[in-house]
Amino acid sequence: MAATLKTLAVDFERALLLLDKQQATSLIAQAMTLGGVQEVIQQLIVQPLTHIGNRWQAGSVALSQVYMSGRICEGLIDDLLPQTTLARRAQPRMAIAVLNDSHALGKRIIYSSLRASGLELQDFGHGVTVDQLVQRTIAQAIDILFVSVLMYPSALSVKAVKQGLGGTRTKVMVGGAPFMLMPDLWRQVDADAFGVNAADALDFINKHTVTQGS
């Protein structure tokens, strides 16, 4: 049976979960003979990464696999879409940061996955204070700010970030363990959305882009 982008995507996801970068690279090369760059990115990278993220949420894939998959895809996408190319999608101005805490893995996963989806965003780093985050967000005229936290008190600090951003058009999506374990917490801290994985971040970006454009 001849390979299609759909069948290659299944093999690609399997290769990612086995951390088989060589096989993943080979499958991308094969896919490029069947479709254009954006089509390959969408079907072989965005959809498998989304599926892997959903499987982590459901408990059938581990966080280390999500992280390593994102890193592999980030490398592949850099080969397909060099940073300076115009092929990267037109998009809102975006940034990501870890508020107060030092654990940056969640941020790194979202950062890698979004870049692997052909998007660009700024990395404001980890251990960022409320004041630092507000100042950089305003100075850079960020449209969408992703805020990752590990500790509950850091999650509560998102409210101060939102207050600091009052009057701007910046939308804030939050993520991290406290928000997963307290489903209403993102509303309590006045965030605009809560995301579990990169797929949620992509949805939020798409909705925001549509809203901006309409």
């Binding site: 107060n100 805490d101 030092s102 251990g127 500790m151 509950y152 008190p153 509560l156």
Partner: peptide, 12 residues
Amino acid sequence: YRDDGPPNAGAP
């Protein structure tokens, strides 16, 4: 240290 949560590790 912080006033409302557990002391956290600094940089690795």
